[in-house]
Design a protein around this nucleic acid. Structure first.
Lengths: 187, 187
DNA sequence: GAAAACACTTTACATATGATAAGAAATTAC
DNA sequence: GTAATTTCTTATCATATGTAAAGTGTTTTC
């Protein structure tokens, strides 16, 4: 739990009682590589914090596996469109290395908001940061070509290359593995 | 202001004092068609509510005007990546018809959060809904072709066609006006 | 440690998209 | 209401990307 509370501190400070309340509705989860942490069709009722490992969110478009996002150490992994609507997600969370998560029960968490305004504020700020990230992702998809985004990716997150198969990176960039191979091949 | 508070009610109920506090930091703004409500390089310190009219958020990629989003009546218009980071935005907000906005001063608004937890909760929920929308937009860009998205657009928002020039719709879909014309032409 | 499975690259070909330009249609301005 | 401007469509051509298939390399499994 230490890593989790350290992560929280970047957004908002919590009272001891608030930390305790969160700890009570959270548990550690270990997942084997290549297995699904959450499956397609499942309604998201858990906010995951990735302590160790790599995960991706993916879905199928006409039998083609498409990666929506990657997650690395010390970040939140959630399918927001399911968490905030209560509807089943068309996406799954898969683990690409043996990974450790802290799983926070979200209905329980939301109940804590009334008694602990500092928790509500914390998650408001976390999700505001997610909104900024997601808006920037829309921008990067519209603004830049797959090639430009590949170069940004290897520059800003070179570890991705080492930890994630290229076929997933390709679908994340919106291109085929063949196209990615061409981009990598030139020069 | 009536329309604004009616919009708020969809997310959270406010006390009379809270409504009054928001009214005090808000003002009505009228903008002539085709002019910019906020320019590129401006740091977003206003949350706009669009009462009447149409707006779009756009930016330039190598001198090409690209539309990031459209906004219609009874919705919030904000460049989140600037509002939440305090950094200047690379995007502008342009008005496509003579439009009426309610402009909420965001630094003042955020100050109200401590005294009015119902205001903090209101905007938490509004921005959570924005997060869901934005995640769905990422999905739609990756998931669907421009042609599929055009058909969804005319089905779900047929008024867009009547109120927005096709060239803006094309860039919103990530294609050229020529390509959009081909899609529209077939059949 | 050999066999099997998986991941990546390369090639050839077909197709869709973009760029450019020209013309038609619609809108705006006087 | 006519001219000017803007918007949209159509056509032609060049290019980039996808599909399919084959081959190479790497990792996994027993």
């Amino acid at each position: 739990m230490v890593a989790l509370f350290k992560f929280f501190k970047k957004f908002n400070t919590l009272s001891k009682e608030a930390e305790k309340a969160i700890a009570e509705i959270s548990k550690e989860v270990t997942v084997k590589r290549n297995s699904d942490l959450q499956t397609i069709g499942h309604t998201c009722k858990t906010i995951y914090f990735l302590k160790k490992g790599v995960a991706r969110i993916y879905y199928f478009k006409e039998d083609i596996d498409i990666t929506e996002s990657f997650s690395f150490e010390n970040s939140i992994v959630v399918r927001f469109e399911s968490l905030f609507t209560g509807r089943p997600s068309k996406k799954a969370i898969q683990v690409l290395e043996d990974s450790d998560f802290i799983a926070i029960n979200s209905p329980e968490l939301f109940k804590l908001y009334d008694k602990h305004p500092d928790i509500e504020r914390l998650f408001r700020k976390i999700f505001e940061a997610s909104l900024v990230e997601t808006v920037n992702r829309v921008e990067s998809i519209q603004f830049h070509t797959a090639e430009e985004r590949y170069k940004v990716l290897i520059k800003e997150a070179p570890n991705v290359l080492k930890r994630v198969p290229l076929k997933y990176i390709a679908s994340y960039l919106g291109i085929t593995p063949v196209s990615l191979s061409r981009i990598r091949g030139q020069k």
